[in-house]
Every structure is written in C-alpha cells, then in structure tokens.
Computed example of a mutant assay.
Amino acid sequence: MLRQRRDHAELDRLMNAFPAAGADGPLRDRLWRDFVQLVFSHAFAEETVLWPVLRRLSPDGEELTGRVEEEHQAINDLLARVEKDKDDPRREALIEEAFRLVREDIRDEEDVLLPRLRAALDDRQLRRVGAAWEAVRMAAPTHPHPAVSRRPPGNALAGVPLSGFDRLRDLIAVDSPSGRRAALALGALAATGAVIVGVRRSARRR
C-alpha cells in the first residue's frame, strides 16, 4: 500500500502549498493542475482495482467502499464546478470544501480501508494488487467526470476513452480556438471509442 500512501502524501503537500501560492500566477495554476490530475487518476485506480478486492474479501467491504465512493462523487462534483467557471465568485470556497473532502477521504482510506486490505492479503498478493493499481492509475482520467460510474465495468468503459481526452487537454491550451477544436475532436473520438468498446462487450456476451 506504499504507492497509495505516497499519493496521499503528495496530495497533502499540494493542498498545503496552494494557499501560500498567492491569488494568481503560474505556481498556483501548476499546483491546482497537479492536484486535480492526481485526485482523479488516484481515485479511478482505487475504484477499479482496490475497492472490488475489498468488497470481495471483507464482510463490511460494501459499506466501507460505498462511503468512500460517495466521498469521491462529492469531490468529483465540486471540482467539476470549479473547472467549469474560473470566474465563479464561489470558486475559493469550493476549492476549500474540495480540500476538506479530500483530506477526509485520505483519513478514511489510511485509517480503515487500506489496513483492511493489508490484513486480508499476503505480501505477494499485495504486490500484485499494487502493480495493477499503478498500471490503471497511469492510464486513468485526470479531470472530473461526474456522470461516470464509480464501479467497474461502467467506470472502465467510460474512463478509458475519457483518459485520452483528458491527457490531451493537459497538453494543449484548450482556451485557444485551435485548442478547443482539438479538444472537441478528441472528445468525439473518445465517445466513438466508448461506443465501440460497449458494442464489442455486448457482442461477446451473446
């Protein structure tokens, strides 16, 4: 579980550095971008890899993961509002509330969920689960998508195409006309990819 705890420490560092970065400027923008990207890639990997294992192995896994998934959804909704309108007068208050929820989520995971996984798995199993978590995190979405399911397979069906869209958004200036056109084009491509994956899965079930 060292990988997850490293992410938690980095999130804590980013949240602590953000208020001291000033009202505007490149440092504040970079801290926010890094925070958002890590929040969503981390949470997506947990929901795809870790929490299904916990639900299978722990008698109260459904209750525990359900609570954390509700926290993830609330964070997703808040950060979607923040990203939607940078001039929203409530933006700072929304960011503070998002930080509070992220810190609460980290405490729940550190104090309850990760210890349960550690107790249920031996070292070899933990390494395998950790490697799977890291692989998923590296290919996960990096921006809020409130409508995406919190559980597999729904999150993977939507999340894999969205990941490509998000990571291109991270590389291009979407505020420019050319950036917006590129983002829209990739969004259409991502949606097409999601439909193709869904059709193929449906066909295999028949």
Score class of each variant (00 low, 15 high):
73 Q>H: 14
112 V>A: 13
64 L>K: 03
175 D>N: 13
60 D>P: 01
49 V>D: 15
118 R>G: 02
38 L>Y: 04
108 D>F: 04
59 P>N: 09
190 A>F: 06
140 A>N: 10
31 L>W: 03
8 H>A: 11
138 M>E: 15
60 D>S: 13
69 E>R: 08
183 A>Y: 02
129 V>T: 09
7 D>G: 02
59 P>G: 11
173 A>E: 03
101 L>A: 00
18 F>L: 14
34 D>G: 07
159 G>T: 00
86 K>E: 11
61 G>E: 10
150 R>I: 02
99 F>W: 13
96 E>V: 02
160 V>F: 13
29 D>H: 14
58 S>K: 04
46 E>M: 06
191 A>D: 12
87 D>T: 07
141 P>L: 06
70 E>L: 12
71 E>K: 07
97 E>T: 09
201 R>M: 13
177 P>R: 06
39 V>L: 15
182 A>V: 13
151 R>D: 07
90 R>E: 14
152 P>C: 03
107 R>E: 14
15 M>Y: 09
30 R>E: 14
108 D>H: 14
84 K>Q: 15
145 H>M: 10
151 R>T: 05
191 A>K: 12
63 E>Y: 07
125 Q>V: 01
164 G>L: 09
97 E>P: 08
168 L>D: 12
34 D>T: 02
185 A>E: 05
136 V>K: 13
173 A>C: 01
5 R>H: 10
78 L>F: 06
121 L>W: 10
41 S>H: 03
2 L>C: 13
43 A>P: 08
166 D>E: 12
45 A>T: 06
119 A>L: 05
69 E>V: 09
178 S>L: 10
48 T>V: 05
109 E>K: 11
136 V>N: 10
139 A>L: 04
67 R>G: 01
